[in-house]
Computed example of a mutant assay.
Amino acid sequence: MAQPTSPPHLTPQFCFSEGTLRGFLRLSRSSLDDSITQNLNALVNPARQGFDPASTSQRAPRSFTQQLDRASCQNFKDAVLFPSWQARADVLHYCGLVATSPDPDDPEAAARQVEAAKEQERVVDERLDPYSGRYLPKEPRTEQLALLLRQEKGVENIVRSRTWDVVRQRCGEPLDKWEDAFHGWRRRTGALALAATSSTR
């Protein structure tokens, strides 16, 4: 069975490092959600009743999918799937708080102030160059982080929906929406209360 995603050590530097943040999310999704069919297939125990040589005489149709044991499915969801989703949710939540908090350590803040001061002193003649009046200051890294998080939250919703469709099909999951199952697990395990008390720094 696959292993749940280990949550990273959360710091503002982790969030502001786009490569590190995206790398964590990508690795977690690829090891679990992108390979959900293989992860669920690993729950099947073909040797439970012994090997039957006749089972290899016919090839199963491509569309055949074996219904999995409910207990194995529940264990997979509780021990691997939902904890991995929670680890990613914690990262997105924490970094969302970082993106909306003051950023006194922004290394580019001084450069932006100098650039803004130069822009105020610049003489603009839009009759000679209609584009000379344009001034597009570089966004603070908190705004860049907020944009990245909006994109990643959209990706996360799509990934979870696709994963849940496969889980429902293979496990006979009665809940239509992944949100209902995930929130139910969070309430049972106390993960919901833990996320509510997290802080940025």
Rank of each mutant, 00 (worst) to 15 (best):
G184T: 05
L147T: 14
F182V: 00
T163R: 01
H93R: 15
W85D: 06
E143W: 09
Q66W: 11
T5N: 00
Q66S: 10
R127T: 12
D69F: 00
K138M: 15
A196C: 12
F51P: 03
P61S: 06
D90P: 00
D176T: 12
A111M: 11
V80G: 00
G96T: 02
V44H: 08
G133R: 10
L40F: 06
L194D: 13
E115S: 15
P53I: 03
D165V: 10
T5L: 07
Q58K: 09
N157S: 15
S63K: 10
F14H: 08
F82H: 05
P53D: 08
D125S: 11
Q58P: 01
T100Q: 15
A71F: 12
V91N: 02
G50N: 01
D125N: 14
P7V: 06
D69L: 05
A117M: 12
N45R: 14
L175C: 07
G50H: 02
T200Q: 13
K118D: 09
R188Q: 12
R134H: 12
Q13Y: 04
Q67T: 14
T100I: 08
G19S: 13
P8A: 05
R170D: 01
L145A: 04
T142K: 04
H93P: 02
C15M: 03
E126P: 00
L97S: 05
D106I: 01
Q113P: 05
V166Q: 10
A196G: 14
G23Y: 00
R88N: 01
A193N: 08
D106W: 02
D33H: 12
E173C: 04
F82S: 01
Q67Y: 08
A117P: 05
Q38L: 15
A60T: 04
G19A: 13
Q144E: 08
S101T: 13
N75E: 12
Y131P: 02
N41Y: 02
D33Y: 09
A117E: 14
W164Q: 02
K77F: 10
D78I: 04
E143Y: 03
P4K: 06
N157A: 15
L145T: 05
A71Q: 15
L81C: 03
N157I: 12
S101M: 11
T163Q: 04
A195G: 11
Q13T: 10
T142M: 01
R162P: 00
G172H: 13
S161G: 10
D105I: 10
R62P: 03
R127E: 14
L68N: 01
Q113V: 07
R150V: 13
V114C: 00
F24I: 04
D165A: 11
S132M: 07
S30Q: 15
P104L: 08
